[in-house]
Simulated assay, not measured.
Amino acid sequence: MKIQEEKIIFEKELSFKLSFPSLRNCFYWHYHPEIELVYVEAANGIRHVGKHISDFTGSDLLLIGSNVPHLNFDYGIKINYYQAVIQMRTQFFDSVIKNVPELNQVKGLLDRSYLGFSFGEETKREVARRLKNLSNEKKVDSLLDLIKILQILAESDEIEELNTEDTRVKLFFHDKIRMGIIYDYVHENYQNKPNVKDIAYSVHLTTGAFCRYFKKQTNLTFTDFVNQYRISKAKTFLLQNISVAEVCYQIGFESIPYFCTLFKKIVGETPTGFKKKFYIKE
């Protein structure tokens, strides 16, 4: 369950690696020196980059800097999904991007990628279209296509910084990363009011020490994390056309008004509004 360094193996004549990993049953909290671009299409999923934790609906596009710890974005997804991952050699940035004046915007983007970036709908659509046409076999064409994708990201006005501080792995090494145990506990108990004392005991900390550790790792209280996880599960159930009342009780809340208020606070719209926006009747 501790943080892992991923060793990425590149083909000899390629500057980047394109892959389509499927790790939904694996909690893979990891880092690597290569900058990574991830695109995921799924009904709902978890986004955990550095200290930032949130969820996404429909799709997600992320740029993750060198040595920034992150969770695999298909973790816990139970239905069909699509995931494409590009990992770029460190030499690609150092030898190419840095030395080409026309790519100064891209250089600026990659320089700041240690914060982790997510992108909005129009950018996602355009980049997804290009990603799906990429091929490791067309070497020069694919490299040019990747540079074009990076330029699109650099010019995007739909960019969100996920962290406000440097979260590269050197800042995490002095901690024994226990996030896998915590995620598993919350996943198994989210509908039964997870108890902070129980999870603190599971990771061999006092309740007070656990609360301080968790806040330091995620910038969230444990209660806020549980509520975000519950609302993430609620989105999944709402997308299955389950009633708001049934979803409320299914994720462990006893009050429908409280559930609706919390959902709107976290998501920005009511459960009914979310359901109407995303649910497509077959």
Rank of each mutant, 00 (worst) to 15 (best):
R24N: 15
D74W: 08
L71K: 07
E122S: 12
D60T: 09
L14D: 07
V38A: 03
G58H: 08
N104R: 14
R89Y: 00
V96L: 08
K12N: 14
V68P: 15
E13W: 02
E34V: 03
S54N: 11
T57N: 14
L103W: 07
V85D: 00
G120C: 07
K17A: 07
V49N: 06
V96W: 02
H52C: 13
I35D: 01
R24H: 15
Q87S: 10
D55H: 07
D94S: 03
F56Q: 05
K78C: 05
D111R: 13
P21E: 10
S22A: 07
H30D: 04
V68H: 03
Y31P: 00
S19G: 11
D111C: 05
L37Y: 10
C26H: 15
N67T: 05
F73M: 12
I46P: 07
H30P: 07
P21R: 05
Y114H: 11
H30N: 08
Y114D: 06
V49E: 05
H48C: 10
K12Q: 14
S113G: 10
S113Y: 04
T90K: 02
D74K: 08
Q83Y: 04
Y82F: 15
L61W: 09
F117Q: 02
G76Y: 05
G45I: 08
N72V: 15
E41A: 01
Y28L: 15
F117T: 06
V40E: 01
V96K: 08
N80R: 07
F119A: 11
L71S: 06
K51P: 09
G76A: 07
K98A: 06
L61K: 04
I46S: 12
S59K: 13
